[in-house]
Design a protein around this nucleic acid. Structure first.
Lengths: 254, 254
DNA sequence: ATAATAGTGTCTCTGAGACAATATGAG
DNA sequence: CTCATATTGTCTCAGAGACACTATTAT
């Protein structure tokens, strides 16, 4: 406890019993279509959960997370826990809400900080074996929302899903689920996977009409300056694009 | 402290010394133009600060706030503190970030939850006398950002300003600074006050072209169904509008 | 040829953007 | 009449949206 000139002491007050973080780790997994045909894969938004082995909520599935230490920020704590769970670094992680309802944690007064992370499935590869372990699992988001999760984690997951859906349309975080170079169809598929309601018949027209619209993507070029194409998923080769880094400012008044 | 079946006890760990909230209370004050001419008022975005009387940061200006109790959520704490500072209720208040850098508070390990509130100047009227008191003050945001505020409150204020600017364009929170019925010019002025960069030459056309665009505002009608107008700020009467409650979903892909 | 994905042509309608012009009514 | 603010006229060009059509190439 800190002592000081005015004899302030936190010990005089009831203080929280901990500042945990909970991390909603989203990934999109691709299932090759049957028969090795050249076709776009099916994709599914999944969330990583771990099975608790100790009280409270023993044996229930929960979001990964842990307690913040005095020497770190909650953000650093979340990164540390993410690294421990998935062995990946340099992924998109952001804070999105705090959960502080009295009684939410039987262990005491716990104010939890919720983060959401977006991990490309390719980065989870090395972790595959561990993910197959009984106490760590990837679940489709719908399935997870139907489960009896520990604590208020169902609510946290629900809020995280709403957040990622809004962000998927309002920002370029789709890039977290894509390779550096991708086709328009892949981008469209990723968006649709996260936001099933999203429908744009002329998606390609919208993104490539670059007159007044700020161009968020640009054609990928090879060394000689020729446009790069890919026929990984189709007979006819498709143009590859990459994000430009431009993040449009959205306004309801424009 | 909670005792339980597995003898878990938070007392075994170093725990936070408190969960304070800090509230950035924004208001827009209108200055009538000189000479009582009929003209739109000058407006300024201001923030409410209080002068600390106790250690730490004695005599420095700080954001209002206080410690969360075990029996309430941080949101409830923020509402309570806002009520104590401004004697107003039912105003827009929202959580926007957490501040947890080690050492940010000399009193100990404090993880602070920052809220921003939007208060219509009319609601602050009754509080005017108190606001004139030496220990409570309204400052223009630019001025406040140039001051040597307590704790990391300059950073919090800066983040809050960025947040309100984004929200001002992306949502209809402008309504918090306006009466129920307002003219297009008033709305434009409020937006400009918060986001000086915002410039739209044909602002009125944008908002009243209600074909494909979802209509966020609608004409105010009197009892007989006739459009209501106001000449409070101009010779020629201006049409009054009200918000419809529609909150458009923004997308960079549409 | 077929299947599966990629991409274009074309037409219509609405909105964006710029700017000039007109409307209103207090002083 | 003048002034300040509100509102409309007009013209051009780009984009939205719909939908049919063509392109590519493994199998």
């Amino acid at each position: 406890m800190v002592e000081n000139e005015s004899n302030y002491s936190a010990a005089r007050y009831r203080t929280p019993d901990g500042a945990p973080t909970d991390i909603v780790i989203f990934t999109i997994v691709s299932h090759e279509k049957h028969g090795g045909k050249k076709a776009l894969p099916d994709r599914e938004l999944q969330v990583l959960l771990i099975k608790r082995s100790v009280w409270p909520f023993e044996e229930k599935w929960a979001l990964p997370g842990g307690f913040t230490r005095e020497s770190e920020t909650v953000y650093e704590c979340a990164r540390r826990e993410l690294q421990e769970e998935t062995a990946v670094e340099d992924v998109h992680i952001e804070y999105f809400n705090v959960y502080s309802a009295p009684g939410r944690d039987p262990r005491g007064w716990m104010i939890s900080h919720a983060f959401l992370a977006l991990v490309n499935e390719r980065l989870l590869e090395k972790r595959k074996a561990d993910v197959d372990a009984a106490d760590v699992g990837l679940f489709s988001v719908e399935e997870a929302l139907g489960m009896d999760l520990a604590f208020d984690h169902r609510q946290i997951l629900s809020d995280a899903l709403e957040g990622i859906r809004r962000k998927m349309l309002a920002t370029t975080i789709a890039k977290e689920f894509l390779p550096d170079e991708f086709t328009i169809s892949e981008l469209y598929q990723v968006i649709r996977t996260v936001v099933p309601d999203f429908e744009e018949s002329n998606f390609i027209r919208k993104l490539t009409s670059t007159k007044s619209r700020s161009a968020i993507i640009t054609e990928a070029l090879d060394e000689t300056g020729k446009p790069k194409q890919s026929n990984q998923y189709s007979q006819r080769a498709a143009q590859l694009y990459r994000f430009t880094g431009v993040e449009p400012k959205l306004s309801i008044y424009t």
